[in-house]
Simulated scan of single mutants.
Amino acid sequence: MTVAGKPLSAQAGPVQTNRPATPNRGRLALRDLANGMNQHWLWRAMAMQDIVLRYRGSVLGPLWLTFSTAIMIAAMGFVYSQIFHLDPERYVPFLTLGLLVWQFISSVITDGCSAFMSVQHAIQQVRLPYTVHVLRSVFRNLLILGHNAVLIPIVFLMMGHGIGWEALMVIPGLVLLCINGFWISILLGMLSARFRDVPPIVAALLQVIFFVTPVFWTVETLGKYRHVGDFNPLFAAIDVVRAPLLGEPFAPYSWQIVGTMTVGGLLVTAVFFSRFRSRIAYWV
């Protein structure tokens, strides 16, 4: 068909298509985070189910976590208070809080390594935000910390240790620990999915770090080398929770270290998650 001696196709301009613009990687990562946070009912239910399934058929159930921790505190409290020549009434509360917070931190790190690999079938078969699996891991360990926290008032009453209003500072400390656990789990989860040697390396490092971090020994023990302990990031993470409950001042740089670690870790993880998020399903 022609119009004015020219084919109709020649007179028509280029075909216009209204295809939506493809979101960039950063927006996809933010969308993943927003969708994961919105589905809080899902990862909370999955976290609670993880604990129930772990102790299915057990008489005490999750209380076994608290029972085993209580035995460790009793044994270590007696032995190390004698080794360090410390008053048990002051040392046992210090040890209790240090072990509880360390268990939370170390569990978040080790579980973070398997945050994606442990749910590879769900990732490959169900379309869910990747952050759902990470939030599930962090919340599961927060629940375990809550179970073990019942030991704190028991130990404090037995040792005659009181709790003041400064204990409220434990709330922002725990919030920062959870935020750090979130970005650590994403970063280690991606690295572990890509490089399967990462989980055993992390587990081995945590065993060493436990003994060189002031968990069951005080930072004052280092004497003139105290700064080595003060600048230990894991000690800072423990200190922002332990110090207010003990009614003691924070170590000089604890909040600065934890704050820097939180901001820096989130920025680094945001870059890695935006860049490699689309490859997680292939890595697992």
Rank of each mutant, 00 (worst) to 15 (best):
I238L: 15
H85D: 15
L128N: 12
V150A: 14
S114E: 13
F139H: 15
D50I: 04
Y80M: 09
N35K: 13
G173I: 08
G160W: 06
H121W: 13
Q120K: 14
L157T: 11
G181A: 08
P244T: 04
T17A: 10
F104S: 01
L135K: 00
G77C: 01
L245F: 01
G164Q: 03
L234F: 15
G160N: 07
S185N: 05
L128A: 07
A193E: 00
G13L: 09
A149E: 00
W43M: 07
R140N: 14
E89S: 14
I201P: 02
S254H: 01
G223W: 12
I280R: 13
G259N: 04
L206V: 03
A29T: 05
A270G: 15
A237L: 11
I71S: 06
R127C: 06
I257C: 04
A270N: 09
R136H: 12
T96K: 05
F116R: 09
V208S: 04
Q256S: 09
P88N: 05
W102H: 10
L168T: 11
F182P: 00
R54P: 04
L177K: 04
R196Y: 08
F156E: 03
V241G: 08
Y91F: 12
F216R: 05
L176R: 04
I71D: 03
A47E: 03
L30V: 06
E89F: 08
V138I: 06
Y91L: 00
C113H: 10
V241Q: 13
E220S: 10
S278K: 11
M76N: 10
C178K: 07
I51V: 14
P23C: 04
G112T: 00
P88F: 00
F182D: 02
S58V: 06
C113T: 12
G77S: 02
R279C: 01
N141P: 07
F156I: 03
V202F: 03
Y130I: 10
L53E: 11
I152G: 14
V208P: 00
F156L: 07
P62V: 03
S68H: 09
S58T: 11
